[in-house]
Amino acid sequence: MARRIRHGAGVRDASAPASAASDPDDAASSGNPTAESSGTRAAASGSGRKFHLRRQGRAAHVFLLPWLLGFGLVTSVPLFASLYLAFTDYNVLSSPRFTGLSNFERMLSDDRFWAAVSVTARYVFISVPLQLGFALLLALILDRGLRGLAFYRGAFYLPSLLGSSVAVAILWREIFGHDGLVNDALAWFGIEGQSWLQNPSTALSTLMVLNVWTFGSPMVIFLAGLRQIPEDLYEAARVDGASKIRQFTHVTIPLLTPIIFFNLILQTIGSFQAFTQAHIISGGTGGPVDSTLFYTLYLYQQGFNSFNMGYASALAWVLMLAIAVVTAIHFFLSKYWVFYGDD
């Protein structure tokens, strides 16, 4: 998908100067009586377009200015400040003291750091594929031309809006708590339940379910992707005797791979940064016994509860590098499975 957009933009950018430069020469050599006037018009039109583009460019910069200022002052300054702080001992209350690589060395022997890495890795590598699979399934169902599609699309998107809200803590307790709906359902079959949120073996799974439940955003993107697959490809497949499953595996999936890739990148990055759900549901502790100690939650605890802002900054940069590496691996592997229409 990204490459399509890039090609389109490239064609548009290249066409204007090419026509402006070549038209007069072409007219002179062609012997066309209208060539001169045509060339003059083209030249005039070319310089007018340049002027127009320059004005548009200036307007674009003006409109971008608030964002650029915001990025420069609000994002990039703290970003680079945190890079410096990552090499210091900084407790917020007194001035940072340069300590070299000690914060990074500390991670190696920090059991809770490794617990947070383990929790986050399991969360990312299990819940993201489940979420994307579920989102694709729902998108396929909605793509079958249901009546009231807009309603279902909105209804299914709703959990994405609630997923990071405080209301979820109450909802999840009502569902997975000791006296929750899940245990009520189990009780019908004579099974005595437990608090799924307070059992270290199941607590993380409930957060994965929450992540899968917030499938609205990738579902909407999948739905848009499905709508772009030309119908004549399915017709051709049907003529060739392809079954529904074969149409799905040989038409839908290949043409949807750029969308799957796009969703995979976004959801993976988002899941590495997951914070709110665990913070709300565990009361900020990452409990029980660190079973929901997400990396960002541990980072937050170090920065804001323990006043180890230098260590927290180092943790933040390690996370950023980890996300960069995983994203780079995704991009590297994408050439083996992502199919662009112009390949």
């Binding site: 307790r173 000791h178 437990q194 608090s195 949120l197 307070q198 059992n199 009361g283 409990g287 029980p288």
Partner: peptide, 9 residues
Amino acid sequence: SISEQDGIG
């Protein structure tokens, strides 16, 4: 138990 009271707190 921790389960019965839905958490340590």
